[in-house]
Design a protein around this nucleic acid. Structure first.
Lengths: 337, 337
DNA sequence: TTGTACGCGTTATCAT
DNA sequence: ATGATAACGCGTACAA
């Protein structure tokens, strides 16, 4: 392994001078810099990150923590966040977490390894931040994407989210406006997932405003955010409550599972049952029928999030809890009754 | 920041003994280990990776290089590879590359940063390895997944792939067996993508074996592996060649795009046009109609790949080029004519 | 502008 | 079984 010492020796300068050159600093004469750089290039030398990070506080690396492997919304957002972050001269490291893993505990572990300048959470539960956040926010600024941390009140832990309750309300109100009265809902476990809790609140708000029935055991099926679970729950819902004319699924992926289930049951969409999804992933524009869905603006989430994280990294720990708009995108999966 | 020294002081032992405990070694008395572990747990101490890696030659980290952000097959495989690798006590770092980026150049850059014990490529072009691989294979063993590196002949660069030509042949032969004679193909640019080149070869082999026509300009549409491109190409294909009764798409994602396009054109699937995809992603079992597709066994790819990479890491640089079987999974998108 | 020297947190070697 | 101590490669006061 070639080290900075080797370069120094060969270039005929001290290690400090070489260190200055590789660090891209200007307090070294151009001539010296040039001759040292030549030696560096000749040997394809690059600094040992471990050694550097052992000294430096800041690694100029942003850690991206993603909850769940097969979340299409998150997959799209990783891309946006990465390009935003890289445009600022930082590098990125992606780490996937299992859906049921406690992301804050995992983060606390990982930050000692990676020593990131900041952390992005793609999906997170506010409760976890209340209990475990020892160093997140204190030693490392964090921005949570898609989930709101409003009310957390810890410095340097911000969030950019869509208004989940609003989104769900839009979905259900659209169904109501189209004449639906018996609406089933497929979602996550409201005990465990903030997102599910908020979206469920939006559902009940919309239904209550129109004095429509909603019995949790017959109209709500709680499960994971996956194709398979969407499939299974759609069947359960229809079995428990055959008079359903519409289903709102809290994610497009669940909606797509549900769509297939309804197909297998010989139930036409939107002919017999209407369907609304949530997230607005690209795929929702390619199903048969195209999904009517609640769109989360991925680009805005990524852009705003990066801006806030950079502000935190720069030293401003004042948390901000931004909300970007959610909107209904009409597809072909809802029928006016 | 809490260090091994702090633990040592509080536990009343030397740093060496603590180091042995965190390293999980057995040359320390159970009683000592237990009392030290208690202190470690109390403080949620975990070793500083930078410092450890500064000493150790081996970082015990596997770099996973993924080509393209929204590849569902790769997304599923990341999950498998990660759990396989972690089961061996190594950690993983995921890096995404743009689809048109040269993955070998990127890897050469990244390995100096990460100093991984080994590198996984999810998707790669053999040509790039011929021209640029200076340190990959030499300093860092690598395993390419889904693309074959057969014939490369460089040490410690292996591959586990499905037989792409075979898969494509199975797809087309199935269509032929079902009575189709005019078969269109949607794929990638065979100049740029090894996968596309091999699958195209499979197509022409199958067609030639049955003396069926295949004119590249009318029967083949080359594009990127995306929903949108699948959509667009299906339309083009049908316009150029209206007598088509079947389409083979070189990825499920393209097939799903094509499915939607056919829907928009009022062309029934499989009624008027049959469709076969490739990859066997979970989603292909949830479309309407379910896709008939060529399945790449993700688990086998990940498991075999990990085994080979570990062998390379252990010092055995003999490359191996494994091929796992591809098979046809019948869905509902092909009609017997 | 350049160099000297120390320490970052850990592991490995060698004693005990 | 346990401890003292010397590296590992680099950045950075501080000195020159």
């Amino acid at each position: 392994m070639i080290t900075i010492k080797d370069i120094a020796r060969e270039a005929g300068f001290s290690v400090s001078t070489v260190s200055r050159v590789v660090g891209g600093r200007r307090d070294v004469s151009p001539a010296t810099a040039k001759s040292i750089q030549a030696v560096i290039d000749r040997h394809h030398f690059s600094v040992n990150r471990s050694a550097r990070n052992l000294k430096r506080a800041d690694t100029h690396t942003v850690l991206i923590l993603v909850k769940g492997h097969s979340n299409m919304l998150f997959a799209a957002m990783i891309e946006h966040v990465q390009s935003e972050v890289r445009a600022t001269g930082n590098s990125t490291v992606v780490q996937y977490l299992d859906e049921d893993e406690n992301e804050v505990e995992a983060a606390e572990r990982l930050v000692t390894d990676v020593k990131p300048s900041g952390v992005f959470f793609l999906g997170a539960n506010a409760d976890h931040f209340h209990s475990h956040a020892a160093r997140i926010g204190t030693a490392f600024p964090a921005v949570v994407l898609t989930n709101s941390m409003e009310g957390l009140g810890k410095p340097a832990i911000s969030s950019v989210s869509t208004d989940d309750a609003l989104g769900a309300r839009l979905a259900v109100e659209h169904l109501i406006a189209c004449g639906h009265r018996q609406i089933g809902v497929i979602g996550g476990n409201p005990q465990l997932s903030t997102t599910s809790r908020l979206r469920l609140r939006g559902v009940t708000q919309a239904l209550a405003a129109h004095r429509l029935p909603f019995a949790a055991d017959s109209h709500y099926a709680a499960t994971r955010y996956s194709l398979e679970c969407g499939y299974r729950c759609a069947g359960q819902l229809l079995e428990r409550c055959p008079e359903l004319t519409a289903i709102y699924a809290m994610s497009d992926i669940m909606a797509i599972g549900a769509l297939r289930a309804l197909g297998d049951l010989g139930v036409g969409v939107p002919g017999q049952v209407s369907l609304v999804g949530h997230d607005g992933v690209e795929l929702s524009g390619y199903t048969l029928p195209r999904l009517t869905t609640i769109v989360q603006p991925q680009l805005d989430l990524a852009a705003s999030g990066t801006k806030i994280l950079l502000r935190h990294i720069a030293g401003d720990g004042k948390p901000s809890y931004e909300t970007v708009g959610a909107s209904l995108r009409e597809g072909e999966s809802v029928r006016r009754a």
